[in-house]
Design a protein around this nucleic acid. Structure first.
Lengths: 153, 153
DNA sequence: ACTGCCGAGTTGACGTGTCACCTCAAGGTG
DNA sequence: CACCTTGAGGTGACACGTCAACTCGGCAGT
C-alpha cells in the first residue's frame, strides 16, 4: 500500500529546495572555477585554514569544521598540496598539521571578492534581509538536527 | 583593501545554508544508496520518467526538467541503461527517447518509501509547516533568479 | 607482556560531474 | 549550389566524493 510518506505540498517543498541548492551550488562553483581556478571545496579549506591561528589545523579539526569525511578531506588535501595551496607538516608522533601556504593565501585573497559578489548576486540580494535571516534560521535548525543525528556526532 | 562584499551576517547566513544543504544531500544520498542502490541522480531520473506520459521523454526535456547539463545527463543515462533501469529508443532521424524499464519502475517503487521517510525525518519534520512553506517560498524565489540568469535561459 | 580495541591518517577502486570537443541533421543566406 | 550557423546528442579526459579496507600509535583489560 506504499504510502508516499510525503504530502504533495511537502514533496514540492523538498524538490524546490533541493533543485535550488543544486543549481546554486553549481553556479557558485562555476564562477569560482572560472575566475580563480578553485573549487568550492578548495575555497572552503583555504577559508577555514586562513581563519585558524597560524593558518594551521589538524586534519581532524578541519574535517569537523567542514563536516567532511576523513577520506574526502585527505584526497582534497593531497590535491591541494600537489598544487602548492597547502602543506602537511608532521608535528607529533602520529600527528600532522595542515598549513596554508603563501600561494594558498594569495589564491584565497584573489578569489574572495568575486566569490562574495556572486554569492550576493545569486543568493543574498535575491531576497529581503528578513527573508535571509528567516532562511538561515531554518537552515540552522535543520543543520542542527543533522549534526545531532549522525553516528559520529 | 579587499572589501568582503558580504557582511558578517550575510556570510554566516550563506555558510550555514551551504553547509546544511551539503550535509542534507549527503545524508539523503547515503540512505538511498544503502537501502536501494540508487544515487540521488538515479532517483531524480526515475521519478521524472515515471511521471512522464508513457514513461518516456527526450533527453533534452529531461535535462530541462532536472536542470542538468546535457553531458551529465548523457553519462547518467549511459550508466542507468547499463544497469537496465532505463532504455534508449530511436524515434526520429536524430531523435532519441529515454524510457523507464520495468526494472527501473520496480527500483523506484522500492526506493520511494524509505526516501520519503528520510526526507521527512531530516528535513520536513525538523521545522514547522509554516517554516517549511516559508523556506520553500524563499527557495523558489532564488531558484527563479537562477533560472532567469543563466546563459541558456 | 599479550591481546584487543579505538581512532587518526592513508590508500585504491569505483561511481559521478564538468569541460572541451566532436558528430550530424536542419535551416538560413550568399 | 556552397557555406555557415544552430542545436541535440555523444565522447574522453580528468577532477571529485564515497566506500571499504588498511596502517599504526595509544590505551585499555587480563
Amino acid at each position: 500500500m506504499e504510502q508516499q510518506g510525503l504530502t504533495e505540498r511537502e514533496r514540492r517543498a523538498w524538490r524546490t529546495s533541493f533543485e535550488m541548492t543544486e543549481l546554486l551550488r553549481a553556479r557558485i562553483e562555476q564562477q569560482l572555477q572560472a575566475d580563480s581556478g578553485l573549487s568550492n571545496a578548495d575555497y572552503t579549506v583555504l577559508a577555514l585554514l586562513s581563519e585558524a591561528p597560524d593558518g594551521r589545523m589538524r586534519p581532524y579539526e578541519l574535517g569537523q569544521a567542514a563536516n567532511w569525511e576523513k577520506s574526502r578531506l585527505h584526497h582534497q588535501l593531497t590535491r591541494m598540496c600537489r598544487r602548492g595551496l597547502t602543506g602537511r607538516e608532521r608535528c607529533g608522533n602520529r600527528g600532522v598539521d595542515v598549513v596554508i601556504t603563501q600561494k594558498g593565501l594569495a589564491a584565497l585573497a584573489d578569489a574572495v571578492p568575486g566569490h562574495a559578489q556572486e554569492v550576493r548576486r545569486l543568493f543574498v540580494d535575491r531576497v529581503t534581509p528578513e527573508e535571509l535571516d528567516l532562511f538561515a534560521g531554518i537552515a540552522a535548525k535543520i543543520l542542527d538536527g543533522l549534526r545531532t543525528d549522525q553516528p559520529s556526532g
